[in-house]
Amino acid sequence: MKLNPMDLYNLLPKTNCRLCEPKTCMAFATKLALGDISPDKCPPLLEPGFEKNLEKLTELVAPMLSAESTGIKLDESKCTGCNNCVVVCPVDVAAEPPTSEGKAAMSKDTVFRVENGISKIINLEKCRRFPPDKLNCRVCEQYCCTDAIEIW
């Protein structure tokens, strides 16, 4: 499930008070959906009367906390260790060229490596989605057959 900025916007005070860094409620909602800001950065939301809205927003963005800075969330319970993510990841192919031919990743230089039958992200900072580049690469999610990888 991905967050829709409009759903988040509807839970904000919609006052455009300019007390937050994004300045407008719509911009705040967009940043919330991208995981770039947390709900408690909206000062009016912390005031009495918005408790339920804050609670709902916190609940909605909670999975983002596990998505870390790239937005990639890897559910190990769904992973079968098929190596699809290793083979399609352009960073892995550059770091360990045999992976482009379907070989398993053996080095410590790749983003993904299948360890003990489950894919692990061993170098998150090398992911093309990692700040500051934040490229909109989603190949690992696209070819993960079991939906173990989700990008928020």
């Binding site: 079968t80 260790g81 990743a105 053996m106 490596r113 299948v114």
Partner: peptide, 23 residues
């Protein structure tokens, strides 16, 4: 699969590249 590796340390086994079924 012949592109995989494994090691045993005490009662623990660690593998690289093996899928869940293989591990």
């Amino acid at each position: 699969c012949d592109d995989v590796a494994a090691g045993v340390s005490g009662k623990t086994v660690n593998s690289l590249g093996l899928c869940k079924l293989g591990h």
